[in-house]
Amino acid sequence: MPELTRRRALTTAAGLTTAAGLTTAAPAAALAAPAARAAEHHHGAPEPFDEVYKGRRIQGRPSDGGGAHHEHGGGYAVFVDGVELHVMRNADGTWISVVSHYAPVPTPRAAARAAVDELRGATLLPFPAN
């Protein structure tokens, strides 16, 4: 589970940085992006995930690229409370979603969490919008 390893590494790094009296945000971001690239660059799809984040179920899994997913051919599908969130992978391995389209994050799980933050409890609509 590279995802867990990475998370543990990040948590540890953040803790050490805090202990050193520095801000945590910049080092965490600096670590996260290369880690994501390393874990996900060689083929394919990142690991699946399934968790409750801020009271909402977020899930991610490799997809076959069929169905509604053809908009981006991403090969990975993310869901918030069972509704698919349109996500896209950038050439450098970072990810965005339709509710956070201009701010890349390291992993599809981070994109799902960013979407939950952005939604502030609102229901996601199935895409394509309307």
């Binding site: 981006h72 051919g73 896209m88 992978r89 950038n90 339709v98 389209h101 394509p128 919008a129």
Partner: peptide, 21 residues
Amino acid sequence: VRTHNGFIMSDTDTGERTGHR
């Protein structure tokens, strides 16, 4: 708005891309 979102969702780094990236 609808036109813009359609291109946002379909423009990809590894495929056809027109409005963005």
